[in-house]
Structures are given as C-alpha cells and as structure tokens.
Design a protein around this nucleic acid. Structure first.
Lengths: 213, 213
DNA sequence: GGTCAAGTCGAGGTAACCCTCGACTTCCAT
DNA sequence: ATGGAAGTCGAGGGTTACCTCGACTTGACC
C-alpha cells in the first residue's frame, strides 16, 4: 500500500515543451488554428467545432487530436490577440490628459471586441477560469486599475466609480456590440459616449443605491 | 379552374373567439400557463418546454395541444404582465419634473425586468415579430417617445439623444440585469445611474460618431 | 350508463452538437 | 524500402432539446 507512483511534478508538467510535430500534423494544427480564429470571430465562441474542422479541411477526429476541448482553442488563440491590450493600456497611461487616457482605453478595448465576435464572448465570460486567458485578463485588470486611479486622482473621473463598475460597464457595452455588430457596427460608440459623459467628475450626481457588487 | 374555396376572412380568423374548453382542458391550460410563467421567470425564455410540462404535471403532448409553440406561451403570458408598463408611463408623464419622470420611467421598466428573467428576454428581442407582444411593445415605444420628448423640451435631457438610443441603452442595461440577477441584484441601478448622469443636458459633450442607427 | 368528440399521454422520430475509438494512412529514421 | 510510431479519419454512441401521432382516457350530454 501507499506506493507513490513516481510522477512528474506540477512544474514539469507546466514547463513541458511540446514535442516536435510531424510535418503533416504541424500543417493541420496551423490550419485548425486559422479556421478557429475565423469561425469564432464570425459566429462567436459557441460555434460548433464541426464548423471549425470543416473550414480547416480536416476531420473532426483530427481536431480533437490537436485540441481536446474548446478551451484549448481559446487558450491558443486569444492570449496573442489580447497582447494588443497591453499596448492600448500603455498608450492610455502615456496620454498626458488622464481623462483622455481613460476614455481612450475603453474605446480601444471595445474597438477590439467589435472586430471579433469570439473575443467579445471571451471577455464577457465573467472569469475565464484558469488557463492563459485568465492570466491575460488579470493583467488587463491591472492596467485598468492604474488608468482608473490616475483619472480619479486628477479629479476627472467621478470619485464614486469603482473598479467593479468597470466590469459592469463592460458587460453593458459588450452586449451592445454583440447585438448591433451586423446592423449598426458603430452604435456602441454612441452608447459609450453617453456612458463616459456620465462618468466625468463634474457630471456626478449621488448614487442612491447599495454596494457596487 | 380559378375556383375560390369559400374561406373565412382574415377578420373572422382574428376575431374567432376560442370555443369553450372542456373542464379538464381548462384546468390543464391554467396549470400550463402558471408553470410557464414560473419557469420562464426563473430560467429565461429559452427554457425547455419539457420543464414547463413537468412543472404543470402534464405530458408534453398536452402542452403542445394547448400551445403549439413557444411564441404562443409568450403571447399568452407577457401582454398581461406588461400592462404595468402603461401605468409606469402614466406615472412618468404625471410627474411634474420631466427629468424625474424620464428617469423614473427607465427605472420602472428595468425594475420590471429585474424580477423576471423571461420578461427580460422578451424585451431584449429586438422586434418581438408579430403577435400581441409586438403590439404591447409598440405601445410602450409610444409612451417612451412622449416621455423623451417632454424631457428634451424642458431642456433636461440632452438634445442629441434619439429614440433609437433608448433601445441601445435598454440592450445594455438589460444585459447587466441578466448577468447580475443572481449575484448582485442591484448592480444595474448603479449602471443606470451612471448612464442617466450622462444623459442630462448639462453633462452632454459632443458625440464624435456617425448616425445613431 | 352509453356514446363519442374532446382531451391526454408518452414513446419515438428528427436534429444539432458533443466526443471517442478502432481501423486505416502517412511520414521519417534507419 | 520498410517497420512502426505518429497522425488521420469518420461512423457511431451519448445528450438534450424539439415536435408528432396513434392509441388510450375522460367529460358532457342524451
């Protein structure tokens, strides 16, 4: 009893570099990734994986051989796509006017989502639960925190705005993007404009209601 | 050729009063309606009809005998539920301060949605396409138009706000309600408060972007 | 209480999507 | 060129919903 199976450590598992793929396999993997990127962008994150396989010109079995589940696709696709987020945040913080920086940050994040239905869905997942995607989101939240703090310190962003409210605003605008993507691709900009006007310090009226979250 | 089948007119079909049901059938119909109201409120409009049948204590076949499709349920349930809307609108227009009226109207509409997942879904359907539900919505839109116009005429609601924007705001806040219903039932109020502060005439900054819809 | 239209039942067909697994094919190192 | 590991294939089993239809049951009226 009590035999310990000699097992690789957690770190080993995490650090395990992917063994080199055979030429055809590498090709298929690339085709799958490209197909998934397109399909998710068009149809959203819930698109049937069969569609992805078909678009990649590969069987459903092969798809599962490369990506055991939908999450594997997300982790492979979105972190790279979200790298732009860091740039947007940098630009926002570099902006001399803290309010312009704040507004530009939101604008940038939403513009990104407006180009990609899948990305929109990915960010709408309250907590992308584990994986690299979660990591990227955490980084994004960090950026957001600094940008919000700076705008508030400058007295431009209303003082009663909290970080949690940012998630709520994101939920709201993301939905507008999703619904109007096809028919009125810029409707969300008006929506955001109204919102921003309500977030300026000088526009603030006391909020009667309970805790933010 | 060219024989016209003697057929009842459109008006006849529309006006056709439902023939009296047998006692047991009437009972089942009532049970189904009650069950559907509950189930939709809890699980949203997309809830499986099998759940409704089960909760009503009736077979799936009976359910379909009474309501041939999901729309039939909606038409039977929501118009009554939305009658409150007329009251809310009345109150809003009776309010001496046009801004308070406008804000109260939105507050009322959303509070209604916050109590009923199904209602929320129903109103989120851009155009409930036909049926009595559509009629109710059209009436609601009429009310909204008057309330908006009054608030703008009084110089309280920003002049560049258009009726189409109301739909957008509704989309946004409805989604917040849906997402936070379980965890933070009042999050939407903060969201609405920010929004409203952005809609006040004195908060308005020019919107750079194209047409509203 | 007998008749039969009205109502009820639920098994089962259709469909969309999930994912697996054993038979087959292809690459590559020798 | 060939053996065998690596990769590919797609039919098929599982799930969850939708909706139908023929056999059965029941209420209402005589």
């Amino acid at each position: 009893m009590n035999l310990r199976v000699p097992s690789i450590s957690y770190d080993d598992r995490m650090a395990a570099e992917p063994k080199p793929l055979r030429a055809d396999a590498a090709r298929n993997r690339a085709k799958l990734l490209a197909a998934a990127t397109e399909v998710f962008a068009e149809q959203g994150l819930a698109a049937p994986l069969e569609h992805v396989a078909r678009r990649a010109g590969v069987s459903i079995g092969t798809l599962y051989a490369h990506f055991p589940n939908r999450r594997a696709f997300q982790d492979a696709i979105f972190p790279a796509r979200l790298a732009v987020l860091d740039r947007i945040a940098e630009t926002a913080l570099a902006e001399p006017d803290p309010w312009t920086g704040f507004a530009g940050f939101l604008e940038g994040v939403f513009a990104l989502q407006a180009e990609d239905h899948g990305l929109n869905d990915a960010l709408a997942q309250r907590f992308p639960e584990g994986g690299e995607l979660a990591e990227v989101c955490r980084r994004g939240a960090g950026h957001a925190e600094r940008i919000v703090a700076r705008a508030q310190a400058a007295g431009r962003l209303r003082a009663d705005f909290e970080l949690a409210d940012l998630a709520v605003v994101t939920t709201a605008v993301s939905q507008v993007i999703r619904e109007s993507m096809g028919t009125a691709p810029h409707a969300w900009r008006r929506c955001l404009a109204f919102f921003l006007d309500g977030l300026r310090a000088e526009a603030a009226h006391p909020i009667p209601e309970p805790r933010p979250l």
